[in-house]
Design a protein around this nucleic acid. Structure first.
Lengths: 122, 122
DNA sequence: CCGAATCCTTCTGGATACTG
DNA sequence: CAGTATCCAGAAGGATTCGG
């Protein structure tokens, strides 16, 4: 399995695993949410409060897509008042590792990027 | 330095290092381009051909932002015909590591995600 | 309490044609 | 060869309001 080399003629591929994961993880809320859920199961409102500034519609749709991807489970408790808990799956938990690697790189190097950005003033 | 816990009340922060890097790396062409440049310096047309399907405008703007972030250098040679070479900086090269980690995770787990997606049919 | 429905804005990226 | 210039479509995300 070759990872580098032989890019010649390759086109953009929306089915590429890396692309799928980048789309998944690159969206505005995913990393934040799975970071919160890493503490343990959380209710809708807890997540919403923990993030602060996310509208219910956006939180709902993000959670739905996370569930659809198998990264999060959604459990409804038949109670009054209703309670819904979201929890990371093993798959979702395993995603934390590469994300943490990116986070570490970010914290080490984002200063350099920001410096360049302000200097160049694109 | 605590990474987890204490999310309480935290809001979405566009200045968060992780967010900046996710925005940088999550865009449509960045990972593809730095993957190509990992082989060595490349000319505009080489990159364009290697990717296939990117318009010059988009390639230009992506390369410009990569240069602005200090991940890539742009060198103009005063020749006829004109030649411009793009090359990874050390910073750009160092980014390959966390990206590779994400790529590995993707290749291991994207099947599971795709399975779930097709099953759930969101 | 946990969303759904609707409407709207913004932003990325693309099509096409042209230039130093 | 290496871009620019215009114009534009689609999707993500947000504001607000309403429902089970």
């Amino acid at each position: 399995m070759r990872l580098s080399s032989s890019w010649e003629g390759d086109a953009f591929d929306p089915e590429c695993p890396t692309r799928i994961v980048l789309d998944r993880v690159g969206d505005k809320w995913t990393v934040l949410i799975i970071g919160i859920l890493d503490e343990g199961p959380k209710r809708f409102s807890e997540i919403r409060l923990a993030i602060g500034g996310i509208t219910p519609k956006v939180l709902t749709s993000t959670l739905r897509s996370l569930v659809a991807d198998g990264l999060v489970t959604r459990e409804v408790f038949a109670e009054v008042p209703p309670r819904v808990e979201y929890e990371l799956t093993d798959l979702g938990r395993s995603l934390q590792e590469p994300v943490a690697a990116l986070r570490r790189w970010a914290e080490l190097n984002v200063a350099a990027i920001s410096d360049n950005r302000s200097r160049v003033a694109r």
